[in-house]
Every structure is written in C-alpha cells, then in structure tokens.
C-alpha cells in the first residue's frame, strides 16, 4: 500500500505574541515541531503501511526540511518539500491547490493522511479542500481506522460520539491526535534520515497554476492580527446572598455560559 502523509511544521507553542509595531507574529526563537495531529497521521501511516511505502510531504520554507527528516527518522520512506516563494502567503484554498499539484506529480497512492488541524492556524480546512481538489472521498476527524479487502473503515469523531464510515480507496483521511501515541524517532532512524534525500519541488516542477497559488490568488486575506484584550477589572456583586445568587445566574445566562435547565 502506498500512503502519502501531509504534514506542517508549526511553532512549539500557542503562546505567541504580536509585534505591536508591525502587527506581525513574533516567531523568532520559538522552536518548531511537526504539528501534533500530523504526527498522529504519520504514526497511523506507519501502523497501516504493511509492505507498502510512505511518502511524507509538506509545503513550507526551506527549514521545513527538518520536519520531513523527523518523519523519515520515525520510519517514513520518502520525503518531498514543496518550497517556492510563489507558494508564500497561500490561504487554505491556495495551499490545497499547491499540495494537490504536488500529489498529482507523485502519481500513485492508495491513501492520503492529514492531521485534523494545525495548532497555529486551527482551520482544519486543508484536508477536505485537498480531497475536493483530488476528487477523493474524505473522512475527517478520524479516531480509529482499519483497512480490509481494499476498503477503509474509520471511526469519525462527533461531538457526542462517533460514526463508522466505510469507503473505497484511494481516499483522504484527517486524523485526530487522540488516535495514537506517536513513536519517537530512534537513533538508528535519525541516522537513516540524515543520509536520505529530501526532494524539493518548486511550483514549476509540479505544474502548479500560478493563478491558484500564493498570497494574491488566495480568496481570503488577513486584514489585521491582534492580541485578545486582557481581562478587565472584575465586578464585585452586591446585595443579600439571595440577591447575589440571582444576579449571578442571570449574568451567566446572559453570557450563555449556562443554559436553561
């Protein structure tokens, strides 16, 4: 079985600050990691692969190569970096277009695994958008998966339980990190990863349509980023104990923290 895993390199924290002068995120000095849901997708692929092959793919700056090498060290067989300034600033639509072009160049695959969502953007959109671009069936929020007789059977997490969905292959699944405990790379794996080749593909290499990638082709645009306002001065409620209890319940209802019973 041939599996493609799409990953993203993200800052190892959600505790980021904004430079008040430029309105930009301060990313300097924050270590980077493979996005946690994506790491679970790698682990899922390693458990499913049997005698197959796993290709791990990312789009990002040159330093995203380190995330690919970590995936190789965990046991993936092949690594591809989509890296071109023409991809820069892509929103989820344009990102899905670029990755779809990269996957078309890879050609053969039975399964594509993505993480549910990245801890920086939190959109959870690229997976389904990629599935649409490649015209594949999708199963999102997958918490358990098995493959039998050429069919994928997956548990798709819901707010209050899960549903079991079956589909043929090829298909695209987005994996939640709760599915598994991702393995650590071994020392031998790290050795192998640093001897392997990471292929770098530019927009031209994958025949990406320049009207569908990058910042300017992206249908959404960020107008502004800002830090959420800090907590204001708290309110001390007044009155008798009964009055305060009533007041408190009304305020919580108003803020929709508690609902009607």
């Amino acid at each position: 079985m041939e599996i493609i895993v799409c990953i993203k390199q993200v800052p190892d924290t959600t505790d980021v600050k904004i430079d008040p002068k430029t309105g930009r995120l301060i990313r300097e000095g924050i270590p980077v990691i493979i996005n946690p849901d994506d790491k679970a997708a790698i682990e899922a692929a390693l458990q499913l692969k049997a005698n197959g092959k796993i290709t791990v793919l990312t789009m990002g700056p040159p330093q995203a190569e380190e995330a690919l090498r970590e995936a190789l060290a965990m046991g993936c067989d092949d690594a591809i970096l989509l890296c071109d300034f023409k991809f820069a600033g892509s929103d989820t639509w344009a990102t899905a277009n670029a990755i779809a072009a990269g996957i078309k160049k890879i050609g053969k695959y039975d399964l594509i695994l993505c993480g549910r969502q990245a801890i920086d953007g939190d959109t959870a959109q690229v997976g389904p958008q990629l599935a649409e671009s490649l015209n594949l069936p999708q199963i999102t929020y997958v918490q358990k998966v098995e493959i039998n007789g050429g069919k994928v059977k997956a548990e798709r997490e819901l707010e209050d339980g899960y549903e079991i969905i079956e589909t043929g292959m090829p298909a695209l699944l987005t994996i939640v990190k709760e599915m598994n405990e991702a393995r650590y790379p071994t020392l031998q794996g790290i050795d192998k990863a640093y001897e392997a080749e990471v292929k770098t593909w530019k927009a031209a290499d994958i025949g990406a349509d320049e009207n569908k990638i990058g910042l300017k082709a992206s249908p959404t645009m960020v107008k502004k980023v800002f830090s959420p306002s800090a907590k204001g001065q708290g309110l001390i409620l007044q009155g008798s104990i009964k009055e305060m209890a009533h007041d408190l319940v009304e305020r919580l209802k108003e803020r929709e923290i508690i609902q009607k019973f």
Binding site: V225, S227, P228
Partner: peptide
C-alpha cells in the same frame, strides 16, 4: 494559536 492571537 489556540486563542492567543485574533485575526480579522
């Protein structure tokens, strides 16, 4: 970023 940043 888990609510640490807001974007418009």
């Amino acid at each position: 970023f888990g609510g640490n940043i807001m974007a418009q």
